[in-house]
Amino acid sequence: MTTASHDGAPGPTPSQTVGPFFGYALPYETGPRVVPGWRPDAIDVRGRVLDGAGEPVPDALLEIWQADESGRIPRRPGGIVRDGHDFSGFGRCGTDADGAFWFTTVKPGAVGDGAPCIAVLVFARGLLKPVFTRLYFPEDETAHAADPLLGAVPAERRATLIAAREGERRYRFDIRLQGDRETVFLGF
């Protein structure tokens, strides 16, 4: 798809890296807390972002976007100023010195034919454009077999899209940008 900008050149505005200095501007205190921890159906997702040498990426920014617990797509604001009950579906978390991030959210309901999943974007210094992936849940094996995206992923790489269960309502989802067990990234 092409379009004309003011100089007549076709096409969209190119991406550039988020750089190392977004930390005082983009993250905000309630960013990782998509729902309050006291909600009985709240889940915790934790993970790390690792580079091609297996080293932590301490200057990555993660964003998640998801349907609510019944599979409805949120259409209301509240991703920045959370009021405690409305669900905006959006979360943002910068990684710490260990490359670690966390979110408190709810498990989304299934949307259409797909298995329940959360859309995940990662920005970082050294990423000239974001990487896009999905987080699936380990208990949904049957639904995974019929999921259109998982079906398009080579079997040996599929596990990189499925979070590990770490306890009651707790999951781990590590993101490997490159190399051994590189996370599957999506081309859209």
Binding site: G126, Q178, L186
Partner: peptide, 15 residues
């Protein structure tokens, strides 16, 4: 910084 952070595998594009 792209050298160790750029994905090396092809991106997956579901049908």
């Amino acid at each position: 910084s792209t050298v160790l952070r750029a994905p090396a595998q092809e991106l997956v594009m579901p049908k």
